[in-house]
């Protein structure tokens, strides 16, 4: 508790020099029972940076992504967003999560609420925005991701690609400092992947700070500033997309790229 309250005063000094990382992970460890899923992870993401995390399944990349807004707890280490250390629970945690947008593999739109209400729920209930103001914001965001004409429908009436774009709008409505994407296109039919990736590329171009777990190498090439390659719970390699795809250094990365790029 004491460290939380002292940390909350930090951001002003952070933004002064502009080099403080927006997201910082220090010596983060996590176990699932016997399995050591995150091994001493150190990561810093700067403001406006787009980081793509790739790696074989079971490498811990989704767990890493979910740990950043504490949907997964960590055993030890430290995670900070904009200088604020992740609190373990309660209102402080909810407050910090509201600044971190999250897009899930399974969309997770609120099934009983219309598309519009999915997007306005956070602004109205968490940010205490007026209903009319929230609706305007939601409609402009839905417009931006190209699903404004679906705003009265229930999530189940939309295609997967449309649902995921609504999910992006829902996260953006909170005006997050950073957006986390946990395999956002893995549950989509092939013809719908691009509509979601296009929305993500546009977001990256606008300067949003993004951490994206994905298997879409095209997105990594197009939008990433940095690629992290994870295997067995460790960050094995870290490079620009150009460098990583043309000249991977580790044997694990070479092996992985060999398998997916020959498809």
């Amino acid at each position: 508790m004491t460290s939380d309250s002292s940390a909350s005063t930090v951001p002003a000094s952070n933004s002064a020099d502009g080099t403080e990382p927006l997201v910082s992970l220090k010596n983060v460890n996590k176990h699932f029972g016997e399995l050591h899923v995150l091994k001493d992870i150190n990561l810093e993401v700067k403001r406006g940076e787009v980081v793509v995390v790739i790696g074989p399944s079971g490498s811990g990349k989704s767990t890493l992504c979910r740990a950043i807004n504490r949907l997964e707890t960590i055993d030890d280490g430290d995670i900070a967003i904009d200088g604020n250390h992740m609190p373990s629970e309660g209102k402080a945690l909810a407050k910090l999560r509201s600044d971190v947008g999250m897009v899930f593999q399974a969309f997770n739109l609120f099934a009983h609420k219309s598309v519009l209400h999915n997007v306005t729920l956070g602004p109205v209930k968490v940010r205490k925005m007026k209903a009319t103001e929230a609706k305007d914001l939601a409609m402009s965001l839905l417009e931006r991701v190209g699903v404004a004409n679906q705003s009265d429908k229930l999530p189940a009436q939309l295609s997967g690609g449309q649902q995921q774009r609504v999910a992006i709008a829902r996260a953006l409505a909170m005006k997050p400092k950073v957006m986390l994407f946990d395999e956002p296109t893995s549950a989509l039919d092939p013809e719908m992947i691009n509509e979601v990736l296009d929305a993500m590329v546009a977001l990256a171009k606008e300067g949003m700070t993004m951490i994206v777990v994905t298997h879409e190498m095209g997105f990594a090439r197009k939008a990433a500033d940095r690629v992290l390659f994870m295997a067995d719970g460790q960050i094995v390699e870290e490079a620009t997309p150009e460098e990583f795809f043309t000249n991977p250094k580790s044997a694990r990365a070479k092996d992985f790229l060999g398998k997916i790029l020959t498809q």
């Binding site: 999560r97 099934a111 996260a171």
Partner: peptide, 12 residues
């Protein structure tokens, strides 16, 4: 996932 999405937008 419904609970996770609710928590992710900052609902306690």
């Amino acid at each position: 996932g419904q609970a996770e999405a609710a928590r992710a937008i900052g609902l306690s």
